[in-house]
């Protein structure tokens, strides 16, 4: 900041904010009560008593409790400066996630494609709009996607035509027989599918990581205990 390097003004604001929070936390109490009413300064509270002619006395809030009492400057700062700024910073995530996923979330190989499909299922399945998408729609999309795959890799028009006709006919036939229930077959219903992803593959992966971390801690601890790990001594 002293060298006035690029962005020094932000450092100045950060340091000023620190002192502002420090001073209002430790030296400015605020919150002077006259009955149920609260005033920021003792003068204002006394003026209110004089103007109303009441016999009440000014009761300042206890030090320490003032940071969470309505009417104190610290509480005001938390409510009207810190909270909106924190919420804004976190909300920016939505914009950057959208922009980053648009630019970087590519189906470059099998693993990336799997992640992409799982991500889309989770994103749609977690929110109410996912339960409005019928499992039959998903089945049709799947049938057409497989058709695109056959066309791309096998390059046989008859096979593609046969697949699309056969699969769509089968889906339509089953749909008409079952009465097109929106959540049946459950395996193609996005909310059920996302729940399965959470509770089976994701859970297995998370558990593997947790067990791996646990075993790693045990192994490192044993290395320390038996004197095999000496890096902490500077070796």
């Amino acid at each position: 900041m002293l060298k006035q390097q690029s962005g020094w003004i932000y450092s100045a604001i950060a340091i000023a904010s620190f002192f502002f929070a420090f001073i209002i936390g430790f030296f400015i109490r605020g919150a002077y009560f006259v009955g149920e009413d609260v005033y920021f300064s003792q003068k204002a509270a006394e003026a209110a008593i004089l103007s109303s002619g009441s016999s009440e006395v000014v009761v300042p809030v206890d030090w320490g409790a003032h940071v969470q009492t309505d009417g104190s400057l610290f509480q005001w700062m938390f409510k009207y400066i810190f909270s909106p700024l924190s919420a804004t910073m976190f909300a920016l995530l939505a914009f950057f996630v959208a922009s980053a996923s648009f630019r970087a979330f590519r189906a470059r190989n099998f693993e990336a494609s799997l992640l992409l499909v799982a991500g889309i299922i989770i994103m749609l399945g977690r929110v109410p709009v996912g339960s409005l998408i019928s499992s039959w729609t998903i089945m049709y999309i799947l049938a057409f996607s497989i058709g695109i795959g056959i066309n791309t890799y096998v390059k046989n028009r008859n096979m593609v035509f046969g697949w699309i006709l056969g699969s769509c006919g089968l889906i339509t036939g089953f749909g008409m027989t079952m009465g097109w229930p929106i959540d049946q077959p459950a395996i193609f219903f996005l909310p059920a599918l996302q729940e399965w992803i959470y509770l089976v593959p994701n859970l297995a992966g998370s558990r593997a990581i947790l067990i791996g971390i646990g075993l790693g801690i045990v192994a490192t601890s044993l290395r320390y205990i038996f004197g095999l790990e000496k890096s902490y001594l500077g070796e």
């Binding site: 996630v97 959208a98 590519r106 994103m123 977690r126 929110v127 109410p128 709009v129």
Partner: peptide, 23 residues
């Protein structure tokens, strides 16, 4: 808030799909 989150997710999915198609 569910409607807002639903629409935001749809927009993100839309961009992911179009980003991949363009790719």
């Amino acid at each position: 808030g569910m409607a807002a989150q639903s629409f935001a997710h749809i927009v993100i999915v839309f961009f992911i799909v179009f980003g991949n198609l363009a790719f």
